[in-house]
């Protein structure tokens, strides 16, 4: 058996008869141990890909819920190195496909070569870097390719004619941003997702997951009729923030609801 590249683990999490659920947690929120256990709970409950956020001092693309999670993670002593330790702890028990949500400065300061090498060692399939648009991707791409790690492209409601450029040469999956603004739950998604996804499909064969603002199973179900996957972030982070001892049961229940809704 040939060993598959970590980025293929992400693509393989999607299939024609199975919509993928992608869940997000901030590494170290509210502590190293609890964070590991949250991730394992999400994986056991059937989350197809888990996106782990590296806390950043100034998360410009994130709303208040994830900003607060970042502060809790810092209070628990999170550093880039500790995040890798945390992923290593997860890897001892689970082979769930993983991606990191990380601002570019954290990768830059760790060193591109060194960062992606760690990703390969820990089988991290991809990075979602909110402040790395297609124009600046060539700076990072050679390292990502060398270690088989996807740079997940983000397509925004305003991307329009930029879509072919944004997804060109991408791997893993495409992250379609449902709404303008920052991460966080929304009552309604205004964007014409059907058209946006059709435009993305014209430009790439990669699976497409939609994120930003999704929190109810009903919203997830609706999105799953047009997309290949649904990304739920702030809603999970909020659940973690509001529940301490009962968090495992709550996460498990929430993931079951979402999974049932999308498939």
């Amino acid at each position: 058996m040939t060993k598959i590249k970590p980025e293929e683990m992400l693509t393989n999490a999607f299939s024609n008869d199975h919509k993928a659920l992608i869940g997000f947690v901030t590494a170290g929120d509210p502590s190293f141990e609890k964070s590991v256990s949250e991730i394992l709970t999400l994986a056991q409950a059937g989350t197809d890909i888990i996106e782990i956020g590296i806390p950043f001092s100034d998360p410009v693309a994130d709303g208040p819920v994830i900003q607060a999670a970042d502060l809790r993670a810092f209070a628990a002593g999170m550093t880039t190195e500790r995040v890798f330790d945390l992923v290593a702890a997860v890897r001892q028990k689970s082979q769930v496909p993983l991606a990191l949500l990380v601002y570019l400065n954290n990768v830059f300061k760790y060193g591109y070569e060194r960062f992606f090498k760690r990703c390969e060692e820990l089988q991290i399939g991809g990075l979602i870097i909110p402040d790395l648009p297609a124009e600046e991707r060539p700076e990072v791409l050679p390292f990502a390719q060398k270690y088989g790690c996807a740079l997940i492209p983000l397509v925004a409601p305003t991307s329009g004619q930029r879509i072919p450029k944004v997804v060109a040469g991408a791997s893993g999956f495409v992250y379609a941003v449902s709404s303008m603004g920052v991460t966080g739950t929304r009552q309604q998604i205004q964007t014409n997702l059907k058209q946006m996804i059709a435009e993305i499909r014209q430009a790439t064969d990669l699976p497409i997951a939609v994120g930003f603002g999704i929190h109810t199973p009903a919203q997830a179900a609706e999105i799953a009729t047009v997309a290949d996957g649904v990304i739920v972030g702030s809603a999970i982070v909020k659940l973690i923030a509001e529940n301490d001892s009962a968090v495992s049961a709550k996460l498990d229940d929430y993931v079951q609801q979402l999974k049932t809704a999308i498939n």
Binding site: A134, E135, E136, A156, R162
Partner: peptide, 14 residues
């Protein structure tokens, strides 16, 4: 220099 901003803003900045 450069343009290290979210895709959401790239259209407008361009």
């Amino acid at each position: 220099g450069g343009q290290y901003i979210p895709e959401t803003l790239m259209h407008e900045v361009t």
